[in-house]
Design a protein around this nucleic acid. Structure first.
Length: 111
DNA sequence: AGTATGACTTTCT
DNA sequence: TAGAAAGCCATAC
């Protein structure tokens, strides 16, 4: 994993996000050791389009807004996927984001 | 090799 | 408290 590219790392973490939970780009970037590369996480997820096993819909910005929903196939696909996980989305934002938030640095164990 | 872009974050005004 | 601007890393051209 460590030898894998930055993208693979992002995929690995995103895939480990529990069902019904969400995380932020910054949290993933911080887990990778580069908190400033939050944008790169989004970029990686952009490439994750090739891998449907990556729940990119569980990754949102720090405010809990579906900033990347426009990058999905459909304009409301991301929200649909989240709702499928019992996650309430209001005005492109995740309800109870602070509660559903899943921080890999805390929940996930570094390897 | 250098410049430009991006699904963000933090900080200053 | 809200809005605007700069910063930062990794990839693509």
């Amino acid at each position: 994993m460590t030898n894998e590219g930055f993208f693979a790392k992002v995929y690995s973490i995103t895939k480990q996000v529990p069902f019904g939970r969400v995380t932020s780009y910054g949290a993933i970037a911080r887990y990778l050791g580069t908190p400033q590369s939050a944008r790169m996480v989004g970029w990686a997820l952009n490439a994750s389009h090739l891998d449907d096993s990556v729940p990119a819909h569980r990754v949102v910005n720090r405010k809990g807004l579906l900033s990347g929903k426009h990058h999905f196939k459909g304009s409301n696909l991301m929200q649909q996927l989240l709702e499928s996980e019992n996650i309430t989305v209001i005005n492109n934002g995740i309800d109870n984001f602070d509660i559903l938030f899943w921080d890999p640095n805390i929940e996930l164990i570094k390897q």
